[in-house]
Amino acid sequence: MNNNKNLYAKLIPVMLCFFAMGFVDLVGIASNYVKVDLNLTDAQANIFPSLVFFWFLIFSVPTGILMNKIGRKKTVLLSLAVTFASLLIPVFGDGYVIMLLSFSLLGIGNALMQTSLNPLLSNIITGDKLASTLTFGQFVKAIASFLAPYIAMWGATQTIPTFGLGWRVLFPMYMVIAVLAIVLLGSTPIEEEQPDKASGFKACLALLGKPFILLSFIGIMCHVGIDVGTNTTAPKILIERLGMTLAEAGFATSLYFIFRTIGCFLGAFILRKASAKLFFAFSVVLMLLAMAGLFMFHTETIIYICIAMIGFGNSNVFSIIFSQALFAAPDKKNEVSGLMIMGLFGGTVFPLAMGVAADAVGQTGAVAVMTVGVIYLLIYTLKIKK
């Protein structure tokens, strides 16, 4: 009984950190509000989500080295401190430079957290229970993701005072949770194993010489690009085609995350029975049909259905590609892990391209960019071994 109490006492602060990990997804809805507030073009507004994910390219491997020096728990605490700072800054205004700084710090903090939190959990949960606990952590993370648009919408439309923050009330609300996570995790003793040998940039990049690893790296970039792209573009499609207000259209982002959460939950069970290749193919075809629907139809119901299909289809792509890459180089797991996390840089490339395309031909252009990523994943399906 005491062992269970001790386990839960350690798990609760770690799961709160997973919730804080989901703060990064607020960038989609936030960039839409900043676009309206500052009268930006799509290309200018999409710099914000691009900037957030740019830092994964820079910080993923160095974070692994840092963990070996100061430990996993201290690295997670550092990530929470950086995240706290990123959420504090918008309280003082929503100017262009202020939001650039805020989103930069949010991206840096999340890069630190994504790299260190999963290994920290492995110090608490081991064996066959680790995978299911990690899945639950992703479920908790997704709660923060789909709550963000609702909180922003509430702040933008609320009649009671929000201290002049409006939609930006989202930031101090999440900031309080970040502080709580710091306090709880900081006061929780967690024994850590001796660190593994750290991987360097050279060791990671050398793996791109292996064709399947390179294909997997690009696949991760496409997955994250579609994820961030849908998060950012879904409300814009409704605004452009149906004349919705941003507050009304913000539900589209939440809908995407709701179905991505459902997909993660069901995928954990489906992948125990079904072939990874077959389920991956089903997921990608589902996204391809959704993209075709966004090209062809302009009715509210079908647009929502397409967004939900993308959320479900994209929910297990990362885990399948990641595991396939590990299978391809089982003796280089540290290097492969660092390289795949660097692939989250796709969240920078896609929104920039989508912003330029949207300014040129409307949101159909943004959908076309995402469709290129889906087609690549369809080709990648042929390379999956089982």
Rank of each mutant, 00 (worst) to 15 (best):
L266I: 13
L294F: 09
E300H: 03
I262F: 08
L278V: 14
F257Q: 10
M287K: 09
I320R: 02
A281V: 01
G263D: 04
F279K: 05
A268G: 09
L266R: 06
C264D: 08
I307Q: 01
F318G: 11
F257C: 12
M291N: 04
H298D: 12
T261M: 15
I310R: 01
N314A: 04
K277D: 05
G293D: 06
M291I: 07
I302L: 14
S319T: 15
L271G: 03
A292Q: 10
G267W: 03
N314G: 06
F295L: 04
M296V: 14
F257T: 09
C264L: 11
G293W: 09
G267Q: 08
G313W: 02
I270R: 00
V317G: 05
F297L: 10
G267R: 07
F282C: 15
F312H: 04
I305C: 07
F295G: 02
S315W: 00
F265N: 14
R272D: 08
T261K: 01
F269V: 13
S283R: 02
G293E: 10
G293F: 11
L271T: 09
L289Q: 03
E300G: 01
F312K: 05
G311L: 09
S275K: 10
I270Y: 00
F282V: 15
M287H: 05
F265I: 15
G311E: 05
F297M: 13
I305Y: 04
K273Y: 11
A292H: 07
F312S: 10
F265C: 09
I303K: 02
F279W: 12
K273F: 06
N316C: 13
F295I: 09
F295P: 07
A292N: 07
Y304M: 15
N314Q: 01
F312V: 12
C306Y: 04
V317C: 03
L286I: 13
R260V: 13
I305S: 01
F280W: 12
I320H: 00
F279C: 08
L294D: 12
T261V: 08
L289K: 10
F297D: 08
C264F: 03
N316D: 04
F282M: 15
M296Y: 15
S315N: 10
S283Q: 03
I320G: 00
G311F: 02
L271I: 10
A308M: 08
G293K: 12
A281W: 00
Y304V: 14
R272P: 02
L289G: 14
H298R: 07
F312C: 11
G311V: 07
I307F: 02
L278G: 12
V317D: 06
L289C: 13
I303N: 04
L266K: 00
A276D: 06
I262L: 09
A268C: 01
F282W: 12
L289N: 08
R272L: 15
C264Y: 00
N316P: 11
I303H: 06
T261W: 00
A292G: 11
A292W: 07
S315I: 09
F312A: 14
V317T: 12
I307A: 04
R260S: 14
V285I: 14
V285K: 09
A292V: 15
V285C: 05
S275C: 12
A290H: 07
M296T: 15
F280M: 13
G263S: 05
L289T: 13
L294C: 05
A292D: 09
G293H: 01
K277T: 02
F279R: 10
V284D: 08
M287P: 11
V285D: 09
F257V: 11
V317Q: 02
M287V: 02
L288M: 15
I305Q: 01
F269S: 14
R272T: 13
